[in-house]
Design a protein around this nucleic acid. Sequence first.
DNA 1: CAGGATCCAAGACGATACTG
DNA 2: CAGTATCGTCTTGGATCCTG
Lengths: 114, 114
Amino acid sequence: MLTEEIIEKKIEPDCDCSITGSINIISGKWKPFIIWTLLSGSRRFGELHKVIHGIALKVLSRHLKELEADGIINRKVYAEVPPKVEYTLTEKGMSLNDVLQLLAEWDKKHKVTK
Amino acid sequence: MLTEEIIEKKIEPDCDCSITGSINIISGKWKPFIIWTLLSGSRRFGELHKVIHGIALKVLSRHLKELEADGIINRKVYAEVPPKVEYTLTEKGMSLNDVLQLLAEWDKKHKVTK
DNA sequence: CAGGATCCAAGACGATACTG
DNA sequence: CAGTATCGTCTTGGATCCTG
């Protein structure tokens, strides 16, 4: 029955397993690193590009946009020449700290990371 | 300073941000649901297919294989006709409960899930 | 400097048909 | 029943060149 409803609404049930939102936010090859990096303070685009080595410009750019759209980070543009843009975590973004922390602990505990 | 070092090592720092392992395990469009479902007891392939409505056979099959490879679930085959296969969470799999729980809480708190 | 535009490759997801 | 095989589509990540 409940199953039927789900079929009708064709949805991920609204039981406590609604995790999709949070997972979507942090999954993306580099997103956790971006967030983690910003936890220690705001950074400029170029800084992120250097710190998170290996990430393609385009990908960094898109990830930042998505994180901004998700309300995780703020983007401040300084009207200067040359241009300067700073990315900062929002409150919501900061709150991801616990989540990332737990994931990291679980990782370490189970030696998942190679 | 810390930043400089990270730049030098140009790595996903081996700091506590090593989250990739745990994220890889639970990310996959339906994996959280599979795990969540199995938290209430073992299920057969067909049962999972019905409960987790909308998932393609192929995808369910692959997800199960991956979860098994990751040591999250066990696959028991009963030598019967017709065939019967049961999937059960391992200890490691059970331990993901806390993680999923936190993700769900964060989700709810920030009304991320639409 | 901060990105947008393009083009590509790989993989993830999906639907249907078929088999031991 | 429990999948595999096949084929197609969409999304992600990546490399390079270009611009306000």
